[in-house]
Amino acid sequence: MSDETSDFGTSDVAPGDEGAEAGVGTYLVGLGLALLLTGVSFFIARTHLVWAPSIPVALIVLAIAQMGVHLVFFLHITTGPDNVNNVMALAFGVLIVLLLLTGSLWIMWHLNHNMMPMDQLMRMQR
């Protein structure tokens, strides 16, 4: 265990570890940005000032932006050279998530679209 004293300060960085010595300031900036984005999201969802069909898209964009803020300021996933492995793993995760979401929605939407409405189906089975 004695040789683990230099657990910090290597040329690679674990997720969640600040590369350079960043302190409370990073978290404060992250908290401020996250609060701002959350506030805008809640405002948009309730207001009537915004064109209604654009609201879901705006909410999703704001959510993705806020997740980015959390990743950078809270989890310290950055584009620095010491963070390549973490970013690659994240990119793979995002790829799978996108495939899963778009794939499910796409297939299920077409299935709904091409299926006979449920009440007609029930009538035919009688």
């Binding site: 683990e4 230099s6 657990d7 910090f8 290597t10 690679d12 960085v13 674990a14 997720p15 969640g16 570890d17 492995n85 973490n86 793993a89 994240l90 793979f92 995760g93 799978i96 998530v97 899963l100 979401l101 794939g103 499910s104 929605l105």
Partner: peptide
């Protein structure tokens, strides 16, 4: 260092956890 290996391994677990959540999100949507 072990801290980096452990952190990276846990990061991969978290990503797989997020993938599990995305399946629940897809079924909800």
């Amino acid at each position: 260092s072990k801290r980096i290996v452990v952190g990276y391994g846990f990061w991969i677990f978290l990503l797989s956890d997020i993938i599990m959540f995305s399946a629940f999100f897809a079924s909800y949507a």
